[in-house]
């Protein structure tokens, strides 16, 4: 079923990056390390986007997520510096949280994903279509009055509000 070719290999590499990076974020004591692991995970995600024929998304992931957000996080770590290395990194409920996360994963995978889309699932026969939409189509969709212009405008409002809010919250009170 699974052909062993280049795309599969690439997939596995980026999958490992994603998951491994994620683990690293959650486990690292040093928050700078955590931020760097986050960058790794995001990078893995970008790779997976490329494999999923959404190159624009990958670019946005790198530019926005890694370039802006991850950097922002590093700034925040810097600004809250004195607290990073001293104490416990996990709180009192880490055990239960682990259990919850594992069970959640189990349920999701075994209960939802595999029965439907797994090899023996109900919709296992997925014919992968060759023709996909392009970036132009995305651009048109975002401004087309019949499509997604409204969410687009709302999103921009959201960004404006978030920007203003962040400035207001984070600034020094004289």
């Amino acid at each position: 079923m699974l052909e062993l070719n280049v795309s599969t290999l690439v997939f596995f590499i980026f999958a490992v990056l994603s998951i491994g990076g994620a683990l690293g974020v959650v486990i690292s004591r040093n928050l700078i390390h955590g931020a760097l692991f986050l960058i790794v995970s995001l990078f893995g995600g970008a790779g997976l986007f490329v494999l999923l024929a959404a190159p624009f998304m990958a670019a946005v992931q790198v530019l926005v997520y890694i370039g802006a957000i991850a950097i922002l996080i590093i700034f925040a770590v810097m600004l809250t510096r004195s607290m990073t290395n001293i104490r416990e990194i996990f709180n009192r409920q880490w055990w239960i949280s682990a259990v919850a996360a594992v069970i959640l994963l189990a349920v999701l995978v075994v209960g939802v994903v595999l029965p439907i889309w797994g090899p023996n699932g109900t919709q296992s026969e997925m014919v992968l279509s060759e023709t996909t939409a392009t970036v132009q189509d995305l651009g048109v969709a975002l401004v087309d009055g019949n499509q997604y212009v409204l969410p687009f405008e709302v999103a921009s409002l959201l960004l404006t509000a978030a920007m203003v809010g962040a400035i207001v919250i984070a600034r020094d009170n004289e």
């Binding site: 409920q93 949280s97 919850a100 069970i103 959640l104 349920v107 999701l108 209960g111 939802v112």
Partner: peptide, 13 residues
């Protein structure tokens, strides 16, 4: 949030 997670689990189940 932990509680929410568990409830979510139950619902998914």
């Amino acid at each position: 949030m932990l509680i929410i997670t568990f409830v979510l689990l139950v619902l998914i189940l």
